[in-house]
Structures are given as structure tokens and as C-alpha cells.
Design a protein around this nucleic acid. Structure first.
Lengths: 143, 143
DNA sequence: AAATATTTGTATGTAGTACGTACAAATACG
DNA sequence: CGTATTTGTACGTACTACATACAAATATTT
């Protein structure tokens, strides 16, 4: 082996740190949620629809910072699993309102519990102050 | 519209903030690198091979926190574009050493410049202290 | 020295995420 | 009323990521 992993100037790139942190969180999340069969994005969608029944395509896309095509790919997959259903709006017949099915609600409840554990795993490495600081700094990137 | 984007308890999830920050960085990166035709992962691989010529599959996977299959998918794509080439190691004939081609080196140089601009965009929202703090906190997640 | 285990590279398949584009229907606006 | 915008749909493309199985080379154990 010509080089066994010495430091590289790549380490000083903030973007890479964010990507690696994201990857680590993603991996732990996937493990935690393997039995529920939900990804981060999927449970985010369920969560949002649970919070805002009647939301539509554009609402989800905006809330989750995704484009419409990506959003609908998620929604269609969840609909196929009968976790949500879609009913046309009466006031605006272009819109189709999303609601959780009872199975979707049950899965969301289990998902929220699992997210609690996941978040505990993630946040236990920070003090309360550090956590607040980290959230504040991260928000500046996407807000 | 039944709900126009009020706050949700989703906002208090650190994992989601990391994901959204990652998404924002990813989007800006993609714009910045559209003309170079390189993704974050791809330039990370080029960068690492530039820093450590002779590295092999496993070295890259470890350095970038990816599994071997993902790593090789990246390497193969870059090899197809003649940005790197692979030569069998003499000391260990299982290993195949990666090196940049001259075209790969040129592209890496341009990429490093573009990363400089990208990093400037990303970091200009933080003071020097905040930047150090953010890097320190992020590292705790994946290290 | 021989048998076994590990490492390394290869090849395939699946899934999720993300975006672009083009199209049709409904609504809003001038 | 005609036009522009919004909304949903239906394609297609690309990247990332992981699992698995297989072969070859090397390392380890007996």
C-alpha cells in the first residue's frame, strides 16, 4: 500500500464534512429503520402529511426543499404501499390533497418513536448548548 | 391550500437539518460544477488519487466512507472518461493502483479552483470562530 | 508444505434520490 | 375573453449506495 491514510487537504473542506456527517446519519438511520421499511425522505413526507392533512404536491416540495418530480416519486411510492391516499380538492380542482391512511398513521407513530431513538443517538454527543449552536449554524446554510 | 407552511415539529430534528444543509450544499455544488461535469463524489475521488497516487479500491473506500461497490462505480466512470488509469501493483498482484491521467490532473486543478469558490460561498456566512466550531461539531458525527 | 481464511477486484442487481422536460387541465389575471 | 400561471402527470436520465456472488492472489494456520 503506497499510502496508508495520512491527512489530506480534503479534510479542510467544510462541504465534505457536511457530506460525511450526512452519510453517517443516513447510515444509522437506515439501520434503525430497516424493519419499518422507511427512508428519511419517506418518513419526512409521512410526517408532514400527518401534520398538515390536505397538503399537496407543491406544499411538500417546498417544505422539504425538493423539486416536484422528486416529491411525486416519493408520494407515489407511499401511495402504492397504501400509506396515504389522494383526493381531489373541491375548492381548487387542480389540487389533489394528501392524507394518511390509518395504516400510514400507525406507521408514522412507530416511525416517530424510532426517530426519537435515532435523534438520541445523534444528539447525545453534544451538550445542550452545542446542539443549539449546531442547529443555528446549519440553518444558515439552507435557510 | 389548507396549510401554508407553518412550523412543524419536524424542524426540531437535527438529522433533518443536516439533510437540508447537505441538500443546499449539493445543489450549489452541482451548479458550480455543471461545466466541469463532475459531482462531489467524483472530484473527491480525483482529489484523493491526486494526493495519494497508487491508492487502490479499499483506500478510497475507507477515506471517503463508502463501500467498495460504490467506490468502484465511481472509479469506473472516471476511467471511462480517461481521467484516471489503473495499473496492477507488482508487490501485491491482487491490487490495482489508481493514478490520474494528465487530463485528470488538469481537470482536478480546475476542480480545485471551483471548490475554492464553492467553499467561499459556503463559508462566507460564518465567522472564523463559527467555522471552526461547526467543523468541530460535524466531525463528532462521523469520526 | 498443504489446507484454510482473508483480501482484492469484478460483475450484477436493486433501491432511493434528484432533476429536466413536455404535456394537459384548472385557475388566475389582464 | 384570451393569456399566463399553477398544478398534476408521465416520461427519461444520472448519481449514489448497498448487497451478493464469484474468481484470483495473498496471508494464515496447522
Amino acid at each position: 500500500m503506497p499510502d496508508s491514510g495520512g491527512p489530506s487537504d480534503l479534510d479542510s473542506i467544510l462541504g465534505l464534512r457536511i457530506r460525511r456527517a450526512h452519510g453517517a446519519v443516513q447510515r444509522h438511520f437506515a439501520e434503525q429503520f430497516a424493519d419499518l421499511g422507511l427512508t428519511q425522505k419517506q418518513i419526512s413526507v409521512l410526517w408532514l402529511i400527518g401534520d398538515r392533512p390536505g397538503a399537496a404536491q407543491t406544499d411538500l416540495a417546498r417544505a422539504l426543499d425538493m423539486d416536484r418530480a422528486t416529491t411525486m416519486a416519493l408520494v407515489h411510492a407511499l401511495e402504492k404501499r397504501r400509506l396515504l391516499h389522494r383526493t381531489p380538492s373541491q375548492s381548487d380542482r387542480r389540487r389533489i390533497a394528501f392524507k394518511l391512511t390509518s395504516e400510514g398513521s400507525r406507521l408514522l407513530m412507530r416511525g416517530k418513536a424510532a426517530i426519537g431513538e435515532h435523534e438520541a443517538w445523534l444528539t447525545r454527543r453534544f451538550s445542550r448548548q452545542e446542539l443549539a449552536q449546531l442547529e443555528r449554524l446549519l440553518e444558515r446554510i439552507y435557510a
